[in-house]
Amino acid sequence: MNDYLFNKVGEGEPEVVRLENLLGGYRQQRPFVFPPAAMKPWFARTWFRAAMAGAAAAIVLALIFASAAQGPSEWIARRDSGDPHLNSIPVTRPEVFRPGSIVTTDGSSELELKAAGHGRIRVLPGSEVRFTENSGRHQRLELRHGTIEASLYAPPFMFSFDTPSGTAYDIGCAFRLRIEEDGRGRVDVLSGWVQFEAGEAQELAPAGAQIEIEPGYGPGTAVFRTSGAGFRKAVHDVDFGGPGERLEALRRVLANARANDVYTLLRLMRGATAEERGMLFDRASQLKPPPAWVTRDGIMRREEAMMDAWTTSLGLGDAKRWWVHWKDRF
């Protein structure tokens, strides 16, 4: 006897086949997205990692506070190549670099700043850097133009770098910052995270991402260096193009976005209109679905907890866990 309804063998009754075709579009298709840090072996489980991270943090903090208790520490400027200058005097041997001092490099010289036991900063050719503050707990420099490569081991926001177009904050712990004479520039994050601020504008970039800087606009949206050229150009146009071009540029962003670009899409939501935010949500959730409890309505209402959860689910690391990132520079 034909029992197609039960075993799908033989010819099906037309009404059953019609309903199968009609309802097949609702069928379950979405793959499971493993939440971060799930299903780890015992040595990678949360309690063990938390204990180890806590112990490491305690040791590092003890060292830092011991260092800070001694007051401002000494910075050293050391010639790497060519003919760098410290306060207009050639650097021929290691010199103390004090607040108020300026180092300059011409087109063929380089210099290294040893940053008070917290790492080093390479001043690349064609640069001018002024030391503005050394208070033990806060180290501030000014990159007037040129390029620096910072590799730092310090709590978030201990080191900051002023530029004519805004300020870069180290959140641990390696990045390249370039500023042209006209104020244009770029931050390339090599490990950890960097925040760039200009007035009210603020951008946060994880390792592998970069931030374009335009005078008068401030930082653009963080984009990964591995993103496609079309996507990068479209994001640039959204950030710095005229208001009339924005929607068209945003459509190009969505069309060119890949899974690796979801962080950028989430960052773009911050300054987006409701319509744009909806478009960004739809594309981002196609590429990397958010955690189950994160809803479209919540994102449209700008619920920070949902935005944070989605960003965290991308597995880019926690900006606050600087004691984990610092070892990346070795």
């Binding site: 379950q28 979405r30 499971f32 679905p289 955690p291 189950a292 809803t295």
Partner: peptide, 16 residues
């Protein structure tokens, strides 16, 4: 249907 996929993900996260 519009919430079923999210709820399925949630169920398996709980199971996990």
């Amino acid at each position: 249907a519009q919430v079923a996929d999210d709820l399925v993900q949630d169920v398996f996260e709980r199971a996990l």
